[in-house]
Amino acid sequence: MTALAVEGLTGGYAAADHVVKGVSFTVAAGELLCVIGPNGAGKSTVLKLMTGLLRPRAGRVLLGGREVTGLAPRAMIEAGLVLVPQERNVFGTLTVEENLVMGCFLDPRRARARMAAVTDRFPLLAERRRQAARTLSGGQRQILAMGQALMSEPRVLLLDEPTAGLSPKAAADLFALVRATADSGVAVLMVEQNALQAMQASDRALVLVDGRNAHEGPAPALACDPGIRRMFLGGRGAGSMDATGTYREPHP
């Protein structure tokens, strides 16, 4: 079942400056779609246009078939769409627990129950509940940011470069958590620079170039596509996925 559909989304930071030029895609419930592309391709701008932080010039955003294009962020949360921004995605001076409560700001009566569910999924957050968010490591902050977003029990979760600045180990752990979140039934759209690892964790991938859909398909297939690897990943191409889903370069 399609949880999120984006049709011909167009817009940017200024009226005449369209960073995003007619992007379209769908994400099903329980599916993880990663959006990759070179710098300036419009990946993060797509998220801002979808969540009402920027006003789209054209196109539609549908959540479960209901149009939500251009709604204010508050209305987007109520409709079930939540964004985790790339930077400054937690309240540094608030404790971990307060950060989680802020994730349920519009429905405070459910905060206690939701917090129990989120800390069950991310036990680290329960261990550090009294700690100020600014004292967490980069990876822990990303987990808190995801936990905060999941507090409102979204149908669609948007992640903007969740592994930016993380060590390879922390990034791998985070991808596993994102994968588990999608497997729990949430539709996840993840914008990533760390393209290869992102595709390994995802069901499908969308490649954006110059604000437009360039390629789209099953993530394992795109990860092995020589053209894609040459364009964005710097690989030699024509490799294959092994049984664990890890890409293997061709033998020299």
Binding site: P73, P85, R88, T93
Partner: peptide, 23 residues
């Protein structure tokens, strides 16, 4: 209080507070 927490959240990070539904 919920309002007090929202005040601290806006003081800390206005954009994120907006994304979490704070007016």
């Amino acid at each position: 209080s919920r309002t007090g927490r929202a005040m601290r959240a806006v003081a800390d990070n206005r954009d994120l507070a907006l994304l979490r539904g704070v007016d």
